[in-house]
Amino acid sequence: MPSSAQDLPLGHSADSETPIRSSVELGLVIREQRKRLALKQLDLAGLGNTGNRFIVDLENGKPTVQLQKVLDLMDLLGLEVVVRTKASRSTSSL
């Protein structure tokens, strides 16, 4: 187990992108990365200076978690948020 945030490896999965459309989807991505890094929820809570309840809520997709805490934990896990414009949809399907 890493002893500090500096010891955490950056995300080591292939440069994959996962579109997130709900808090549940975000929670699943965070849970998968935590498990890839062999961290328990309590480990992540300690490294992120937050409570275990916050980690549980986040991974379960609670929509009202604090955004800055989520971003900080994602950074610890080697994840980042990228905002981009959606690809335009064909007008013929309207």
Results as ranks from 00 to 15, higher is better:
Ser22Arg: 06
Ile30Ser: 01
Gln68Cys: 08
Lys86Val: 02
Glu80His: 13
Leu76Glu: 01
Asp43Gly: 02
Leu79Arg: 07
Pro19His: 11
Gly48Arg: 03
Asn49Asp: 13
Leu39Thr: 04
Arg84Asp: 00
Leu47Phe: 00
Glu25Lys: 08
Arg21Leu: 12
Gly46Lys: 04
Val82Cys: 09
Ala45His: 03
Glu32Val: 14
Gly27Leu: 09
Arg84Cys: 00
Val83Lys: 01
Gln33Cys: 14
Leu37Thr: 14
Asp72Leu: 02
Thr85Pro: 11
Val65Ile: 13
Leu44Asp: 02
Leu73Pro: 02
Thr50Lys: 00
Lys62Ser: 13
Asn60Ser: 10
Lys86Phe: 00
Gly48Thr: 04
Pro63Leu: 07
Gly51Asp: 11
Glu17His: 12
Ile55Glu: 01
Asn49Ala: 13
Glu59Val: 06
Val24Trp: 08
Leu47Val: 00
Glu32Asn: 15
Leu47Ser: 01
Arg36Asp: 15
Asp72Arg: 02
Arg21Val: 10
Ala38His: 15
Arg53Tyr: 08
Ile20Gln: 08
Glu17Gln: 14
Gln68Arg: 08
Ile55Leu: 00
Val56Trp: 03
Glu17Asn: 12
Gln33Val: 08
Ile55Asn: 05
Thr64Met: 09
Ile55Met: 01
Val24Phe: 11
Pro19Gly: 12
Lys40Ala: 15
Arg84Asn: 05
Leu28Ser: 14
Gly46Gln: 10
Thr50Arg: 00
Gln41Phe: 07
Gln66Cys: 08
Leu39Asn: 10
Leu47Asp: 00
Gln33Pro: 06
Leu67Cys: 08
Asp75Leu: 09
Asn49Gln: 13
Ala45Leu: 03
Ser22Gly: 07
Glu80Arg: 13
Arg53Gln: 14
Glu32Asp: 15
Phe54His: 02
Pro19Thr: 14
Asn52Asp: 10
Glu32Ile: 12
Thr18Asn: 11
Gln66His: 14
Val24Arg: 13
Ser22His: 05
Val65Ser: 09
Leu42Cys: 15
Ala38Thr: 15
Ile55Asp: 01
Thr18Lys: 12
Val56Glu: 09
Leu58Ile: 00
Leu71Asp: 04
Val82Ile: 14
Arg21Thr: 14
Glu80Phe: 04
Val24Ser: 13
Asp72Lys: 05
Leu77Thr: 03
Val65Trp: 02
Lys40Tyr: 15
Glu25Phe: 03
Ser22Gln: 06
Gln33Glu: 15
Val81Gly: 03
Val29Arg: 15
Asp75Arg: 07
Leu79Ser: 07
Arg21Tyr: 10
Val24Thr: 13
Thr64Asn: 14
Ser23Arg: 04
Lys69Val: 02
Pro19Leu: 11
Val29Cys: 13
Ala38Pro: 12
Lys40Trp: 12
Leu79Glu: 04
Arg31Ala: 11
Leu79Cys: 06
Leu76Lys: 03
Arg31Ser: 12
Lys35Leu: 14
Thr85Gly: 06
Gly48Cys: 09
Gln41Val: 11
Leu26Ser: 10
Leu44Cys: 05
Leu37Pro: 13
Ile20Asn: 09
Glu59Asp: 06
Asn49Leu: 09
Gly78Met: 04
Gln41Asn: 13
Asp72Val: 01
Val56Cys: 09
Pro63Asn: 05
Val81Lys: 04
Asn60Ile: 01
Glu32Lys: 15
Leu47Gly: 00
Leu44Ser: 04
Lys86Ile: 01
Gly27Phe: 02
Lys62Val: 12
Gln33Thr: 15
Glu32Met: 14
